[in-house]
């Protein structure tokens, strides 16, 4: 792992906290786009100095998807809900940030217990991945609006993908592309569902979605 990876991972961790802290939907989408970019760069740079044409193409596709298509789609859905653009959190911002911090700490501790390969030991790759997964999870459980839950899911996926970087040789290109396509499909379907929620409930507040109970 070339030394350039570490700062990128640190920025990823930073982006996590930014995601947790942002109170406006538009800023949330912007940070998620930046996370996509960081991920793409990491993908390209992760294996040695001269990345092959295949990884470069893959990185380009990843950036196009994560930083281009998905944020544009999310932006389009938020435009329908003109009134409420804020992120209504169930838990206050401060407590989610604190939880984020605790999560990252746990991720670091947990990462150290797992035996890493010699070239990966220095890099805090696993903790960053786990922290991002935890942030995504946190976003989904503590935010009220459906859009934020989609973004939370996206962060969770980015975390998983981040961890996937270590295995770039094991995963033949075809499977990686398929994984990418699947993620986009998931976002696409979620986007459609959010539109339908808007149409039926005229607001994407998921706490209203509690009619089905015993």
């Amino acid at each position: 792992m070339p030394p350039i990876v570490d700062p990128l991972l640190v920025t990823a961790l930073l982006l996590n906290f930014l995601l947790l802290g942002s109170s406006r939907l538009r800023s949330l989408i912007r940070w998620i786009a930046w996370q996509g970019v960081v991920l793409g760069v990491l993908l390209a740079v992760a294996h040695g100095d001269h990345p092959g044409p295949r990884t470069l193409a893959l990185a380009a596709v990843a950036v196009a998807m994560k930083a281009g298509l998905v944020p544009w789609l999310l932006y389009r859905t938020t435009r329908q809900d003109a009134l409420r653009r804020e992120v209504e959190p169930l838990l206050s911002f401060v407590s989610t940030l604190l939880l984020g911090g605790v999560g990252t700490g746990i991720a670091l501790a947990f990462g150290s217990t797992l035996p890493m390969l010699p070239e990966h030991t220095t890099v805090l790759l696993v903790p960053a991945a786990l922290a991002t997964v935890f942030t995504g999870f946190l976003l989904m459980t503590t935010r009220r609006k459906a859009i934020t839950q989609v973004i939370g899911y996206l962060t969770l996926e980015n975390g998983v993908f981040l961890f996937g970087l270590t295995l770039s040789e094991a995963m033949p290109a075809m499977v990686e592309i398929a994984l990418l396509l699947d993620l986009v499909a998931a976002i696409f379907v979620m986007g459609i569902t959010v539109n339908h929620i808007y149409r039926t409930f005229s607001s994407a507040d998921t706490t209203a979605l509690s009619a089905l109970r015993d």
Binding site: A146, Q149, Y153, L156, V160, V189, T200, T206, L209, L212
Partner: peptide, 20 residues
Amino acid sequence: NARSIEATWKYLLIGSVGVS
């Protein structure tokens, strides 16, 4: 209807988290 959209949303969300 409203109930099936809610069911779908919950199904999607929990299913996707599980699968990821």
